[in-house]
Nucleic acid binder design. Structure first.
Length: 480
RNA sequence: GCCGAGGUGGCAGAAUGGUUAAUGCGACGGACUGCAGAUCCGUUUCCUGGGGGUUCGAUUCCCUCCCUCGGCUCCA
């Protein structure tokens, strides 16, 4: 197991990681409340934690990655009401859409997506324990509230003092609460909403309780890593700590709290009210999965990242194309001739540098997942490869594979390039070479009108031709 | 107001108590090309918010001020 450091939001410091039960690592990331399609901001968070899980697995840890789905809450009920759909069905629909987006982005590292409503027994049990231990009280209408004043550590994660929270409270005080900072564990049922029987009457889970009910069940009283974006620190994560540590009597609930920065849209937070939300699928459509992942990972994960409408897209595309130059050429050759293709060995120094670079890439990521630095190193490698671009043709399959090692690393850990490789194995793979050959014959006899006609026709179909010295390369652009 | 993250070249965005401050985009020049595109090579010297302090030396550490963004019970 490779050692690494993580910035832990609770201690506000970068700490060396030590798993509770090596080599196993419990990783929990707050998932979506799927009341609407996922947007680009969600993509940033989930791609980043995908990289965390990939890296840990590469380094020898056995990661159990759980990402919850809040499939019932006020917004789902409201939205369902507007659209005349059962809120649970609405959640299912958007969650499936989310899964499809994740698949397109190459996010496949999550082991289990538990649904809140599948954990009602665990939730009821935890509420009961909190009541027994005196951390909660039942209101007149049958709702159960957590009494924040009873939990000494409340406010530590967010750095907020309870008094300050009261002073800054933006919501009106609910008369059912003993104190404004108390939060609901179990909501008394309102007619027409999904509800479950409970010792306190019919109701449904509050927002924070599902997470701790799930994690205690799935990951234990204490676990290693909890991830999410910063906007969930307060009140959500604060409440998780209060619930779980009070209920189990064990602390800390989480050893390392990881919080990713938000994706901004033209310097402002994305939000429905500002009308600046771009859906994740829209972004994948226009960027392509590779450039979008590159855009996300090209910044320190803890800082804000600005999505600028036109600039961002153009830059990500150009940068990705540049980065992929080397691996595309290598894969072209390997695809054409197979891994056993004969040829010379690449210069020893170059092959050795490839190996050393892979080690350096891993080391770079062990510094609190510095994906940005790793990408800078990969650009450097592309520069090296580009200098040898014309010699690549002469190298053996094994030799090419050696030079590809840094890119294979990027595929395994950062999830770059994977999707693009093999894209030409599809229908184009058999058609385009024939068209290119016909065009080459036209060019050879000086019939440029015909040559241009073929090129234009392919372009309309989404295939871009590039004439180089000797041969013509092609690539599928747009969708695919 | 309180808590947190930041202010770096035309733009995005790294890093380090000390030779030319990474990388990418853009721009410019060249190579290649039937033309174009893509690609390759080269150039882009004068960039680290203001003011103090510590130090032989600070962008990096400390103080202070200014500004931006986020959180303060909808939020990835």
């Amino acid at each position: 197991m490779r050692r690494f450091t993580v910035y832990d939001s609770l201690s506000r410091s970068t700490r060396e990681f030590a798993p509770i039960h090596p080599p196993r690592v419990g990783l929990y990331v707050c998932g979506l409340t799927p009341y609407a399609p996922a947007h680009v901001g969600h993509g940033r968070t989930f791609v980043f934690f995908d990289v965390v899980a990939r890296a840990l697995r590469r380094w020898g840890y056995r990661v159990f990655y759980v990402q919850n789905v809040t499939n019932l809450d006020d917004k789902l009920i409201a939205r369902g009401g507007e659209e005349g759909i059962d809120p649970l069905a609405l959640a299912d629909r958007h969650f499936l859409g989310y899964l499809a987006s994740m698949e397109r982005l190459g996010v496949r590292s999550v082991n289990y997506y538990p649904f809140a409503t599948d954990y009602v027994p665990e939730i009821l049990e935890q509420v009961r324990v909190l009541l027994d231990r005196g951390f909660a009280y039942v209101a007149a209408d049958g709702s159960v509230y957590y009494e924040v004043a009873k939990f000494a550590g409340y406010g530590r994660l967010s750095g907020q003092k309870v008094e300050a929270l009261r002073a800054g409270a933006r919501v009106e005080v609910d008369p059912r609460k003993r104190s404004p900072e108390d939060f609901v564990l179990w909501k008394a049922a309102t007619p027409g909403e999904p509800s479950w029987e409970s010792p306190w009457g019919p109701g449904r889970p509050g927002w924070h309780i599902e997470d701790t009910a799930m994690t205690v069940r799935l990951l234990g009283d204490r676990y290693d890593l909890h991830g999410a974006a910063v906007d969930l620190i307060f009140p959500h994560h604060e409440a998780e700590i209060a619930q779980a540590e009070a209920a189990t009597g064990r602390a800390p609930l989480v050893n390392y709290w990881m919080h990713g920065g938000l994706l901004l849209f033209d310097r402002e937070k994305m939000s429905k009210s500002l009308g600046n939300v771009i859906s994740l699928d829209e972004a994948i459509d226009s960027f392509g999965p590779g450039p979008l992942r590159l855009f996300y990972l090209n910044a320190q994960y803890r800082g804000p990242l600005d999505f600028h409408p036109d600039r961002t897209l153009a830059e990500a595309r150009e940068a990705y194309a540049r980065l992929a130059v080397g691996i595309e050429r290598i894969d072209d050759l390997l695809e054409r001739d197979g891994p056993e293709r004969p040829g010379a060995e690449p210069p020893e120094a170059l092959a050795r540098d490839a190996q050393e670079l892979v080690e350096r890439l891993d080391r770079t990521l062990t510094d609190d997942f510095n994906t940005r630095e790793a990408i800078a190193l990969l650009f450097g490698w592309t520069r090296r490869i580009a200098e040898h671009l014309s010699q690549l043709e002469t190298y053996s399959g094994a030799g090419l594979e050696e030079l590809a090692a840094p890119y294979r690393w990027a595929e395994e850990v950062l999830g770059l390039f994977a999707r693009e490789r093999g894209s030409r194995a599809g229908a184009w793979g058999s058609i385009v070479p024939v068209a290119i050959a016909a065009r080459a014959r036209a060019r050879a006899r000086g019939d440029y009108a015909e040559a241009d006609r073929i090129r234009d026709e392919l372009r309309r179909a989404g295939v871009e031709l590039e004439d180089g010295a000797g041969d013509t390369r092609w690539k599928a652009v747009g969708g695919a």
